[in-house]
Design a protein around this nucleic acid. Structure first.
Lengths: 369, 369
DNA sequence: AAGCTTTCCGCAAAGCTTTGCGTTAATAAA
DNA sequence: TTTATTAACGCAAAGCTTTGCGGAAAGCTT
């Protein structure tokens, strides 16, 4: 092994020299990040040697390897992910598009995705569509610009067109939907069994003597709206209850519109004796509005929502609700994503997770009529 | 301009040829991303020409520029951020560390940060410390490995040592704290005026006839605990109220421990007639526990929390609370971050935002004693 | 016609890694 | 002693951009 003195600088020009010294200073001060080149010049070996030494390549003598590895630890070396990304053509980033980030439901799904992603050494980049189709399309574009390797998305409530996703599929880019999915696209997805969930709700309502059950739905083209409506009709039939068309109201997924929808129900000729809402926002808006009308929950009107654990217990009365396995939904989504990455091609696997009807105060009437 | 036929392939080897054809196919199919090289070979010009044409460099003839720009649009070209990052030595990524991501408070601060970051063309990478010092240290390391350009962080409740941040500061890496900050470190930060907030609380309690005001605090070394305690003592004094040491209890920031702390207060010889909790979790846990003890809010015990808008209105009774300007906190944090980036060096600017005491039902006694 | 400007592009380096292949020097074999 | 091995590295290209500088061709001046 040729022993080179430390000060033997491979000087080609003055510029090179100052550059060399600068690099030295930088690595010594710990400023920014150390590169293979920094360590190579410090040790007087080539970059490739350093690279190989770090992975114990047999071509490098054990002594030199040891020296290099020691220095790498001292200097706190870690490979530059940009360089690696350029080389391997992968960014290790996965894009997530959610209607919003502050809702507990989405935040907790994101947490689920993140945990699986972290295991695989992937990072997540989050974009929020704000329930807007426009912003969703933009988000797709922006995420593609950042070179995410694929997308995990929950549709905005406005989305009826899917051109911005079709091109992804043509490009064989991993794409997983969750909760609000696009049924016409052949991609993996994670949803909950809305039909079954609502059938349970109806059954529970029936057991508590409810006869006039209202459903505050969302935009009709959303799969979650459709599912739950199906469960609604099926459930009513099974329980031998009548379906009153005026008890099926629709709203966009905002609190404001949900309040209006509830008001409509409460102002109708024959009030409902039970209501369930399609999601958190709707359920809480309904609760507020019912209270505002001076009606008691659950005795006047029983209420059930699709919500998460935390919110349901904090309100009064505690809300009976269909809880989503949010963390698991996130994990499953990530799992499907990585499956796509691994097999390298598109596939269709629709994961449907069960929900649980957690019965609390808001639906248990004290005097079943 | 030399007119080269399209099929004049600069063939050096068979490999090159297949590579060339493959690139062609790729760009035509729209698969993956088009590079300058792809377009250059398609047009028979050099890469640098394409690069310059795209930014209307005067060296390139207008006609050629137009042709190139047209192709770029057709092929949906966008510069590879990895290559740019490598060249400019910047990743356009900012790391965020929060105690958890599902709490509305943090989620909404993150949203604030994101909006400002997006404007500047930056992306955010989120890591969650789960209130654990260990995980916080790890998060710092991991984020550094991803080459984020700096960090915006809210300390975990366990964090008493700051070695993992000091090294960042030595490296002149942008670092901004929010909410739970490190007072001994010279960095920009964003907090709320806890002292003032609590003084308002006490004043309000006093006006409602409360005399025995309890405070459920957090870990004593956290700045938010200290602030609020200061406000507590100051407020009591101002209002001429007595300070009862047993009315100042402490808990970690978990719901479980907050429940225990509340129970302790309720089981004490002389119960408090007012309680305020240091944050959301604590406030809601206290509310539940008070109800469980069969006590009425606000008449038996008035309650005030530090929470966000949404939660406060949904509970019953609606919770009087100190609302944080969360979105603004996020935006300010981001602003400080970019200020650091721009001036290129460390500075100390402690932004203290005002809070607002939103009075609702939980603190207004019907029969002021 | 010879020399000088422009105009318009291409070359190459830098930023960081990985890796196939070539290159030394030394050791083993003949 | 000469040739064949082997051990231990270094070179260079690729992945994508940007940009200073060099260069060829065309136009212009006397």
């Amino acid at each position: 092994m040729p022993i080179r003195e430390f000060f033997v600088i491979p000087a080609r020009s003055y510029l090179k020299i100052t550059k060399f010294v600068e690099n030295l200073w930088i690595s010594y001060m710990g400023k920014r990040h150390v590169s293979l080149k920094d360590m190579a010049s410090e040790l007087g070996v080539s970059i490739s040697t350093v690279s190989r030494a770090l992975k114990n390549h047999p071509d490098i003598s054990p002594e030199l390897s040891a020296r290099i590895q020691k220095l790498a630890i001292e200097r706190n070396y870690s490979p530059n992910p940009l360089a690696m990304g350029l080389l391997r053509q992968q960014t290790k980033m996965i894009g997530i598009i959610v209607p919003d980030i502050v809702t507990h439901f989405f935040a907790s799904i994101i947490a689920g995705i993140e945990s699986v992603a972290a295991e695989k050494g992937y990072y997540i980049v989050i974009a929020s569509s704000n329930e807007s189709y426009q912003k969703e399309v933009e988000s797709v574009k922006n995420l593609l610009k950042t070179r995410v390797e694929g997308l995990i998305v929950c549709l905005s409530q406005e989305t009826k067109e899917f051109g911005h996703f079709e091109s992804l599929i043509n490009n064989e880019m991993p794409l997983v939907f969750f909760d609000r999915i696009c049924e016409s696209l052949e991609t993996p997805s994670v949803t909950v069994d809305g039909v079954e969930a609502v059938r349970n709700i109806i059954r529970h309502f029936k057991e508590n003597g409810c006869k006039r059950i209202a459903y505050i739905s969302g935009p009709s083209y959303l799969n979650i709206s459709k599912n739950r409506k199906e469960g609604y009709l099926k459930g009513l039939k099974e329980s031998g209850l009548k379906f009153y068309p005026e008890m099926l109201v629709q709203c966009d997924l905002s609190a404001k519109d949900a309040t209006l929808a509830t008001r409509k129900l409460l102002n109708s000729q024959a009030k409902p004796d039970a209501i369930f809402g399609i999601n958190d926002t709707v359920a809480f808006a309904a609760m507020k509005e019912i209270k505002k009308h001076g009606l008691k929950i659950p005795d006047d009107i029983a209420l059930i929502g699709f919500t998460d654990e935390f919110h349901s217990t904090v309100v009064d009365p505690a809300l009976t609700s269909v809880t989503h396995p949010t963390i698991q939904m996130g994990e499953e989504s990530a799992r499907l994503f990585f499956k796509w990455i691994e097999i390298g091609t598109s596939f269709t696997e629709r994961v449907v997770l069960p929900t649980e009807l957690v019965i609390r105060e808001s639906s248990v009437k004290s005097t079943p009529s």
